[in-house]
Write a protein that binds this DNA or RNA. Structure first.
Lengths: 143, 143
DNA sequence: CAGTATCCCCCCTGATACTG
DNA sequence: CAGTATCAGGGGGGATACTG
């Protein structure tokens, strides 16, 4: 959720941002310096962001697992549960924001090594909803 | 993708923003003034945003369907295809950013009137992936 | 009604220096 | 290494007035 920069030619902020996010989350990046390097962000910014995400419950701080003296930032269940968001955004970006001939990355399931292909929205009864079906209304309820 | 405001007490920017977006997209809001009212945004901002989204291909401009003199902003296929993003974010927000006792909205399938419940990530082979499975790696390919 | 044109401000961000 | 402190800038967003 960040300020949308202007769309640069052959460059999609959404997809690239999320590539970045996905990348960092997916790979074994847990330490402050790791995030620093991979994100290419200033230290003060990273400090603020990590702190906010820890407070929010997306990351959890732990003593380093390898015995070193440093802390680790690990995704919580809440954090891992955000993957579908990233995936749905990546899919949308890949479909609509890149030409078919352009270079872009695809996501692989690390278990089967297959491409992760579809985000599916399902009704409680199990019916699969098309984006068209998703036109819907909102209700507000208490409790 | 917007600048994340600081999290205010009992208020989640992500969820509220997306409620807003979802609301607007779901209901029959097509005219400039409608967006203006529902979004509570300044006219100059709305102008810029709509123009950007039209250029990007999310919205399409049409002469009004009801015969009035005004234009309509209608979601394109690209725009409608973004619903799963909204839904996945809403789900995440509802699950993690609200207490169970708090008032929040749920999404209904407008065909069956059932709550829309789950976002599912599926591998190409049809296997359903848990968020844990979603830990993955990225590859870059040409073409 | 549907924008356009200004002005202003906030806050996010980066750069840099400093600390334990 | 892992932050903290401070300063400076730039862009997104709001408010308001104006136009066709």
């Amino acid at each position: 959720m960040h300020a949308a920069p202007q769309l640069a030619p052959s460059e999609c902020p959404v997809a690239h941002t999320l590539e970045a996010i996905g990348d960092r989350w997916a790979e074994d990046v847990r330490r402050f310096s790791d995030f620093l390097k991979r994100l290419g962000v200033a230290k003060n910014i990273l400090t603020v962001k990590l702190k906010a995400m820890v407070e929010l419950g997306v990351f959890e701080v732990r003593p380093a697992s390898n015995g070193s003296a440093y802390k680790e930032y690990v995704l919580t269940e809440m954090g891992r549960a955000a993957f579908p968001i990233v995936i749905s955004m990546r899919q949308w970006g890949e479909r609509f924001l890149y030409g078919s001939g352009e270079c872009h990355s695809i996501m692989l399931d690390n278990v089967t090594n297959e491409p992760i292909e579809t985000i599916i929205v399902r009704s409680r009864a199990g019916r699969q909803l098309s984006p068209e079906d998703c036109h819907r209304r909102l209700i507000t309820r208490e409790g």
